[in-house]
Simulated assay, not measured.
Amino acid sequence: MAAPGAVHEVLAALPLVDHHCHGAVTADLDAGRFESLITEGAAWPGVSPFDSPVGVAVRRHCAPLLDLPRHAPPADYLARRSALGWQEVHRRFLTASGAEVFCVDTGYAPHPLTTPAELAAAAGAAAREVVRLEQLAEAVAARGVEAGEYAAVLRTAAEEAVRRPDVVAVKSVAAYRTGFALAPERPADAEVTRAARHWLARGGRLTDPVLVRHLLWTAVDLGLPLQLHTGFGDADVTLHRADPALLTDWLHRTAGTIPVLLLHCWPYHRQAAYLATVFEQVYLDVGLALHYTGPARCRAVLEEALEITPFRKLLYSSDAYGVAEFHHLGALCFRQGLADLLQDRVDADELSLADALRIAAWTGRDNARRVYGPLVSEPARDPSGRPARKV
């Protein structure tokens, strides 16, 4: 039997690769703005996000980092946060996350956010960029393009974007725009031109199914790992259309091309686990669900995700956005939940300690290094060029 807590000790000290997250808001937040950022819904009258699993987790596990007692009342928490100022709040929580590399989706910014470099500097870590394809397509449309030239111009813009020195992946939010019940084959050039003509005349967000399919196939051509939002999100997603199992036919057609990383996944993490089991190119995480379920239930989510998933296929992600608390809370939930379940299996002699420690390292860091390659695996440096925490 393993020594008590051996897995916990190793996971607590493991530098993580947060393979999908966002920046934190670069401003002090009043009560209303803070509450709006700790929910995927809204701060409705009489219903505070502090009175939810994630709100309770913030008060229990984040308050001590602000020099407050555990379970501090919301008013005290917000007052202390404001007194410290957002820069110090960011430093404390980002450092506490223990991440050595952040892979940052820069394509969603309704608020002023830290850049990847600013996030890295606050954490004493490194950061890499994830390019969001829908934002790229909408920027091409906004600059003005003829329908017949749309595909070529988009391809050029995408190739230029992924050549930026710190870009490690691309991402699509097709789950939000159309859902995954898309025709799986690559659209013909004439289809793309016809769809582009209608979209460019209409304007607005990219929601045309043909053009969303075209984005997914453009990602295949670019050759970088593709991150796909699946499952849980805000009210803009129609949840049953975000089931990753709907991608099955497309995954058959793209076998042998690029890694496909299914993000978040809850409540479809079991479907995602199936896909990761039967398709070589598929990986998953349960980011976002970790801090929204909190330490009280994150183990259950991880346990379900690992029921059949090959251990080299699960990655760590916080999907933190807006408040730096979520970078810390996501990491804390991951470390604690995974350590609890692995240690129990070791204690029950269902897993050797050596195997448990390998799984912990693979999931928290090494699987991401394997998927994303040298930009994540090489020694991290902060923006001044000094070595950050050892990778």
Rank of each mutant, 00 (worst) to 15 (best):
A289D: 11
L290K: 09
W266K: 04
L262A: 12
L262K: 02
P267S: 13
V282M: 07
Q281E: 07
Q281K: 06
L263W: 01
A296Q: 05
T277G: 14
W266T: 02
A273P: 07
P295Y: 00
L290P: 06
A272G: 03
A296M: 00
Y268C: 05
G294I: 00
Y283E: 06
Q281T: 06
E280P: 11
Y268A: 02
V286L: 13
H269A: 12
L263V: 15
A276M: 11
D285S: 06
Y274K: 05
A296V: 07
A289F: 13
A296K: 05
V286E: 13
Q271K: 03
P259Q: 03
I258C: 00
E280F: 02
V278R: 14
H269W: 13
V278G: 10
L290V: 13
W266V: 11
V286I: 15
L262W: 09
P295E: 09
A296S: 03
A273N: 10
A273I: 10
R297G: 05
Q271L: 01
Y292N: 12
V282E: 13
Y283D: 04
Y274S: 05
L288G: 10
V260Y: 07
V260R: 07
W266N: 09
Y283F: 15
V286Q: 12
L263M: 15
P259G: 02
L288F: 09
L290Q: 11
T293G: 10
C265K: 03
L261A: 00
V260H: 06
P295L: 14
L263I: 14
C265E: 10
T293D: 04
P295G: 06
L262E: 06
C265W: 06
F279Y: 13
P295Q: 01
E280K: 09
V278S: 08
D285V: 11
